[in-house]
Design a binder for these strands. Structure first.
Lengths: 323, 323
DNA sequence: TTGTATGCGTTATCAC
DNA sequence: GTGATAACGCATACAA
């Protein structure tokens, strides 16, 4: 591996001079500078990031952490992060595992964006500091070095359900996501509130516990179909589960929306193709904004107020007009 | 940031003793060992990866490089890589940019899996070495330190087209991907060969140049519809473009497959929902296998023979039976 | 069984 | 304008 020493030797100068050139210091003659730059190119010298950050403690790399590979919109979040990061001369590394804790210190990365729920609050609180800010997605934390970027789940879910009720639907089933997650709680609460405002009763037996995966929506629909009477509409806490449910209905000759309407949440790629009524979350923007706040915080412009992103309701053919 | 020194001080021992404990050396008394482990937990000490790898030169982290966020099956590849890596006590970091060159040396990562076409052959040849093996996906390279893992595009494409011809389709259009990519070339070649074997002529005006993105398939279909007569079947070099084409046909009241059949390649999530006939690439397995070979090579079990993964043809409703 | 000294590749300080 | 040197956090050889 070619190091700064090799460059120095070939140029007939000291390592400090090479370092000065590479870091754009003023105190180098143009002649020396050019010679060194030329040699670096010839050797295709790449500064060793380990040595660099070990010494300087400063860092132009941020970390993104996620781990759920079933949710394809995560790529859009990454895209948003990547774009902002590149436009601001930072680098991005992504970790898919809890081991990323190893990289969460300011000699390797300058800050993190955390999406993975497996990364626990107290771990983040321990790691976050004045010179290691963190941005968390989809969870709200109160800490002077941690900023939350969350989607406003409540308002669009409430409005979507109100829209469904306005279209004549009167009885509902609900397929929930992981019960401990904040977004699932918020979506369910909005659903219940919308029903209550409209004086519609909701029975606990109409609640199905899922895990945001397609299979769990499929299973919920299977169970639902065992009951004597279907609700007018099955509300699912995300698209994956809604799609699973639609597949189950299809397999059993139950028509959507004639026999039962279905709604989701996320507006994933499949939602459009399947005509699923859902809430569209601006994922690219979510990543972009998270990266912006993180880098601003790294640069000392501290701001840890929770940021709420608004989402958009999309009515498609999975909800019709109930006569 | 808590370092090895802090642990040593609190334990009343030297840093080397702490280091010995952390690296499971034998020469430490049980008493000392336990005390140190306890203190590490209390301080939630995380070894600094920069210092560590700088010294040891050895590394249990691998790098994955990609950058096309439109292709959602990349998440499946990552999933496969991630699973193999975790099962073998390695870590994974992912880079989405050319800047990842910075991390491609054995003081930061032990090897790389490269998918991004922007990472050029000569760069890889320069970087790869005895102690920095590389695995490339979707391109074939001959280098003692670089292993290629590629999908066999030819056979399934040939067979799929033969199947389409067997179903009575006789005239064809083709939407190609980026012309320089090996997989696109191979898919096109298989397509042409299948036609030739069946004595079917192909006119250059029926070739549309795309870029693997949905929009380019959409545009190709738009242009195709301007011509007086549609071919029996439009073959697309990947699913994204096929889906774009199907949307264009749908918007213009042209029925698939009655008016025109469509085929893709990839079996992305949407393909099933849209009834697209396509070739299914086992992406999870692809990532898993790439990671396996990389780690085996890192461990000295050298093997750089090109590995070909086979794919599976899936006939769906976008191809019917032509009378 | 434990501690001391050295060096990995880099940057920062300071003397020249 | 340039170079010698210390320091970053850690692992290792070797001395104690």
């Amino acid at each position: 591996m070619v190091g700064i020493k090799d460059v120095a030797k070939l140029a007939g100068v000291s390592v400090s001079t090479v370092s000065n050139v590479l870091n754009n210091k003023k105190n180098v003659s143009d002649e020396t500078r050019e010679k060194i730059i030329k040699i670096c190119k010839e050797l295709s010298y790449q500064p060793n990031a380990a040595g660099k950050s070990l010494k300087s403690g400063k860092n132009d790399t941020i970390l993104f952490n996620f781990s759920d590979f079933d949710r394809s919109f995560y790529l859009k979040i990454i895209n948003g992060i990547s774009d902002y990061v590149n436009n601001n001369d930072f680098d991005l590394i992504i970790c898919t595992d809890k081991s990323c804790e190893k990289y969460m210190n300011n000699s390797l990365t300058g800050g993190s964006i955390i999406l993975d729920k497996k990364m626990q609050d107290d771990t983040l609180i321990r790691i976050a500091s004045e010179n290691y800010p963190i941005v968390v997605l989809d969870r709200i934390m109160n800490n002077p070095y941690i900023k939350s970027v969350v989607v406003n789940n409540y308002d669009p879910m409430f409005e979507m359900i109100q829209g469904v009720i306005d279209r004549g639907y009167r009885s509902f089933g609900f397929v929930g996501g992981p019960e401990e997650t904040a977004d699932n709680k918020e979506r369910y609460r909005a659903f219940r509130d919308a029903l209550e405002v409209n004086h519609i009763q909701f029975l606990q037996k109409s609640y199905f516990a899922g895990n945001y995966r397609e299979k769990s929506g499929y299973n919920a629909a299977k169970i639902l179909m065992l009951s004597r009477e279907l609700p007018d509409c099955l509300v699912c806490a995300n698209d994956n589960m809604a799609i699973g449910a639609m597949k189950a209905f299809q397999e059993n000759g139950i028509r959507v929306p004639e026999d039962i309407a279905v709604t989701g949440f996320d507006n994933c790629d499949l939602a459009e193709a399947m005509g699923l009524t859902t809430v569209s979350i601006p994922n690219y923007e979510r990543g972009y904004i998270a990266a912006r706040y993180l880098i601003e915080n790294i640069r000392g412009q501290r701001n840890v107020e929770t940021f709420k992103i608004s989402a958009k309701i999309i009515f498609r053919s999975s909800v019709g007009i109930k006569k």
